[in-house]
Design a binder for these strands. Structure first.
Lengths: 357, 357
DNA sequence: GACGTCAGCGCGGCTGCTTCT
DNA sequence: GAGAAGCAGCCGCGCTGACGT
């Protein structure tokens, strides 16, 4: 076995030359740390030091090694490194739902922040976020030795899939309710909804309806709660809302039903897409927005400023949320027992779809 | 070293028990294949056979092993497996640009298809898709031993960053131009644009303007080409278009300029978001769509059916594109020298924003 | 057929030793 | 003579595959 080790010291070419035996595929052998060491005339340990930016390497030596690395197009194997260091430098990300602006933005920012921190991200998308699927996806991530898992979850079910399950890795949930033992990162959905309703109340509206998000969604629940609580505080009895699935189609359907049951004074939609559907329904009924009905959305997607009319809505900073998630990951990995990040504030953007009655 | 091997045969508890020395963090040691083997009373090799569904294991033995696996919550390490099999079961994905509906949908479908095929996907998002960034992201993927790289690229620059670079892994590009030596997967953008213009020509329009996408974008170029060629075929001299950045803001800005320079008969926007901006500009100028100007978009995002008016547009099947990309990946990894998939057809969706003059 | 034995994938870490300043 | 720079050489991370019996 000493001989085996020494076998590596032979030139790369020769090693790949005996690769023409039967059963050996004609794959071009990739350079290892030993090849680099030999070419640079140093030990593999020194190459390792250069790779990991450790001290005690003379500049001249460092340069010789770096040149050899470039020459051989050497790329260190993260798999081998992970095996020995027990750190894969990889985190897992489970995203559920459709590729809407909000979740997509969060995922994008998590990916960017992770890359900045030197982490790779294995992303799994689950359109059907049943507990079964979530667990299967998570197991795959654990097999791939991720150091932590970030959950970008809309549905309560998704977070609950982790109940009573010892994952072995930390879990960071981007979710609007504190459920289970995951570290939570969140935006103040409740406050945002309250702000939207307050805005309408200040404009003199009393009959403020809600187009809610789906029942299983934590965001939907928080926004519904904010709407309801704020109305009750104002001494108004909330009319039980219909629930849509976030799509403009749902907003259109529910909006049409709302209108034909008697035009409300104002409608607060749980997201901008359903608000768009509501606008569509109003146009079709020859109702003016905001003359006949005010509409407020939630999210401030890039399209919202160009709706007809431009939509009053609640802006969420998805990018900050993604960054917060990665900050939480790094904190957990370093055993920082610091405070979890405070919920991010939302922020009302008044445009032309709401006005005084 | 035989002793070292046998050292592993000690119970898990004992091994973690000597973990209380100084400098040893209190991490819960994860079960290895040897722990499973000992608990099941077999060799680790048999456990490996069970894990990999290999033959020559008695059902009773298999069951004992599986029970031990469950009991210890054993999860095989993909890192170790990758090291010896030289197959990481991981592919890399480089996505550029903002989290728009199209790219996000493609990425989502690639992730889903990869999961179905047993592959993990390391995703990197690059908002700034300069060659420098693309190369850095790609190198990270190669370090992580990905077996192939999928490029979801809008910009020509992104694809060109790979010119003259021996990656060591196959490259599959989702891109509308055949550039470099990557396997290409694509949608027929050119045909889609032609169809949009044909539709407007059939409605009697002659002054058909274009709001183009950014100069570096291959999709923008194909759509522009389709628009221009179709006009020329119809004997119409195309008016050189302004270029936007795909955003509704850009559509609004360019649309406003277009209108103040003299209201065109019809506008074909390179995507639905810019079409939305155009609609906004028309409303603001008190122009009716489609009475005064017809508007056609491209993409058919979920919002398009609820614009005011509902938008005539060209539908693209992003999901199929994502699936095609993964099919191409699997084909390359299996050395299938089959045909690359044919470009996917697009498909005109006529709604209320276009009408006969 | 149904197992067990053993080497080694590519690295990082360690020990022990030498050579230059 | 003391520290920095570095080499030689081995071990083992957890697993698979070749080759036993």
């Amino acid at each position: 076995m000493d001989a085996a080790r020494r076998g590596r010291e032979e030139p790369v070419e020769q090693v790949s030359a005996n690769g023409d035996g039967p059963g050996t595929s004609e794959k071009n052998r990739v350079a290892t740390i030993f090849d680099v060491a030999r070419l640079a005339g140093v030990s593999h340990q020194t190459v390792s030091r250069v790779l990991n930016d450790l001290p005690n390497v003379r500049p001249a030596t460092r340069e010789r090694v770096e040149k050899a690395i470039r020459q051989l197009r050497y790329v260190p194997s993260q798999a081998a490194r992970a095996l020995v260091t027990r750190r894969s430098r990889t985190i897992g990300l489970v995203a559920t739902g459709l590729p809407d602006f909000g979740p997509s933005s969060i995922v994008l920012t998590v990916n960017e922040s992770a890359a900045d921190a030197g982490y790779a991200v294995i992303t799994t998308n689950l359109v059907d976020a049943s507990g079964r699927n979530v667990r299967a996806a998570t197991e795959m991530l654990v097999r791939h030795n991720v150091e932590a898992i970030v959950l970008v979850a809309a549905e309560r079910e998704t977070v609950d899939a982790f109940d009573g399950w010892e994952l072995g890795v930390p879990l960071i949930a981007v979710a609007s309710e504190e459920r289970g033992r995951a570290v939570h990162v969140t935006l103040d959905q409740y406050g945002g909804a309250r702000a939207a309703v307050s805005h309408l109340l200040e404009l003199g509206h009393r009959d403020i309806r809600h187009i809610a998000g789906p029942a299983g969604s934590m965001d939907a629940e928080e926004r519904l709660r904010g709407w309801r609580d704020r109305l009750i505080e104002a001494g108004i009895r909330p009319v039980e809302p219909e629930r849509g699935d976030w799509s403009p189609d749902a907003g259109y359907r529910i909006g049409s039903a709302l209108i034909s049951a008697g035009v409300p004074s104002a409608v607060f939609a749980a997201n901008d897409q359903m608000a768009l559907g509501m606008l569509h329904a109003a146009h079709e009924a020859r109702l003016g927005v905001p003359e006949d009905v005010s509409v407020v959305g939630f999210d401030d997607i890039p399209e919202a400023a160009h709706f007809a009319p431009p939509l009053t809505t609640v802006r969420q900073d998805f990018s900050s949320l993604g960054r917060d998630a990665m900050i939480a990951v790094l904190a957990v990995l370093q055993d920082d027992e610091g405070e979890p990040p405070a919920p991010r504030e939302t922020h009302l953007v008044v445009r032309a779809s709401s006005r005084r009655v």
